[in-house]
Simulated assay, not measured.
Amino acid sequence: MASKLLNILFLQLVCALLVLDVSNAEVLDVNFYKDSCPYVEDIVKETTARFISEAPSLAAPLLRMHFHDCFVRGCDGSVLLNSTRTNQAEKSAIPNQSLRGFQVIDAAKSELEKRCPGIVSCADIVALVARDAVLLINGPSWPVPLGRRDGRVSIASEALNQLPSPFMNITQLKASFRSVGLNVTDLAVLSGGHTIGISHCLGVNNRLYNFTGKGDTDPTLDKNYIAELKKKCKPGDVKTIIEMDPGSFETFDTSYFNEVSKRRGLFQSDAALLTDTETIAYVHQHLSSTGTKSFFDDFGVSMVKMGQIGVLTGQKGEIRKQCAVVN
């Protein structure tokens, strides 16, 4: 009798653990807020459109914000948290100091708190805003599975160590992407996001003036492009703004792949795409406008995949009341 009772208790414990595991399962759903906040996508899109209509250049940093969020601790909104007296948050890390557009996230959160208080996570808002910002400049759209919860931890050193660097070679890039579950195709596709946006001379100065520490230039960089960049970026200049995709930096298209194929990719990480058989094949497949649809389709697939890296669901994390601070 005692043995039978113990077996029953054991089975009940196993069932309870299975239920708990399911409640914390990392499963997102495009209809997650169907009942709790049915107009979430409309509210976020309207808010994003208000900002993008006034400043289309915000689309690139909003897309980059989602990328930087997901590569550190997963897509948990940790990139939004402010530093405190006792902790330097991800925002403080050098790669994130140039992030812009936090006001868009805050505005969307404010609207949602009026309509659906305590329901929609900041992490989900970041994912939705990235999609909407790209779509609003005539880029691709993609479904955004929802249900992320917000993380409570944000550490600058993790961002510095885990974000892919513009100075990485192809081996380092592949390892970085592989560490978060993304493959070589995702690397080539998401690099295409550099078709929009700007950088600073800091990101290319070493290629122009001191590539190997001997005052030389990067031999893989087009000589004419070097001359153009040197007119804008003087030695030691870290602040001057330069376009990622010259002449097309506010248009989401395939021209980035054209620039890369001509050895005019701005970063070493862009040039690295020409040093791997898989990535160079992807570049060559998208050299004309006829490749736009396939690039757009691929970009959506990779963004959905990236948007599910290390998400917090169920009882993990929290739903922040304000995106810059934990509850």
Results as ranks from 00 to 15, higher is better:
Phe267Gln: 04
Thr279Phe: 00
Phe299Pro: 01
Thr195Lys: 03
Phe249Pro: 00
Lys239Ile: 05
Asp216Val: 04
Val283Gln: 02
Asp245Thr: 10
Lys239Thr: 11
Gly291Met: 14
Ile198Arg: 08
Asn210Thr: 06
Gly291Gln: 09
Thr185Gly: 01
Phe257Trp: 12
Ala272Gly: 05
Lys234Ala: 15
Gly300His: 14
Phe177Arg: 00
Phe267Glu: 07
Ser179Cys: 09
Val204Phe: 07
Lys223Glu: 08
Asn224Met: 06
Leu208Ile: 04
Ser288Phe: 15
Ser199Leu: 12
Ala188His: 08
His194Ile: 01
Gly203Ala: 14
Leu266Glu: 08
Pro235Ile: 07
Ile198Cys: 01
Val260Glu: 03
Phe177His: 08
Ile280Tyr: 01
Ile196Gly: 04
Gly197Ser: 07
Gly247Lys: 13
Asp270Ser: 13
Thr292Tyr: 08
Ile241Tyr: 07
Thr240Cys: 11
Gly215Asn: 09
Ala271Thr: 02
Thr275Asp: 13
Gly300Glu: 04
Leu202Asp: 02
Pro246Asn: 10
Leu229Ser: 06
Gln268Gly: 05
Cys201Trp: 09
Lys239Leu: 12
Lys234Ile: 15
Arg178Trp: 09
Asp218Asn: 10
Phe267Leu: 02
Ser269Leu: 04
His194Met: 02
Asn205Trp: 01
Thr279Met: 00
Ser294Leu: 11
Thr275Asn: 15
Gly300Pro: 09
Leu182Val: 03
Phe249Lys: 03
Glu278His: 15
Gly247Trp: 13
Gly193Ile: 00
Gly213Ile: 00
Ile241Gln: 14
Phe296Asn: 06
Val184Phe: 04
Asp222Cys: 06
Ser248Pro: 01
Leu202Tyr: 12
Val260Ala: 04
Asp237Ile: 12
His286Pro: 05
Thr292Asn: 10
Gly203Thr: 03
Met244Tyr: 04
Gly193Ala: 13
Gly265His: 06
Asp218Arg: 02
Ala271Gln: 04
Leu229Ala: 10
Glu243Asp: 13
Val180Asn: 06
Ala281Tyr: 03
Phe252Tyr: 15
His200Pro: 02
Phe257Gln: 06
His194Pro: 05
Ile198Asn: 14
Thr217Ser: 14
Phe267Gly: 00
Asn210Leu: 11
Pro246Phe: 10
Thr185Arg: 08
Gly181Ala: 11
Ser294Glu: 14
Gly197Met: 10
Lys262Thr: 02
His286Trp: 06
Gln268Met: 06
Thr254Gln: 10
Leu221Gln: 05
Lys230Ala: 05
Asn224Val: 08
Lys231Arg: 15
Leu229Ile: 11
Lys214Val: 01
Thr240Ala: 07
Phe252Ala: 07
His194Cys: 02
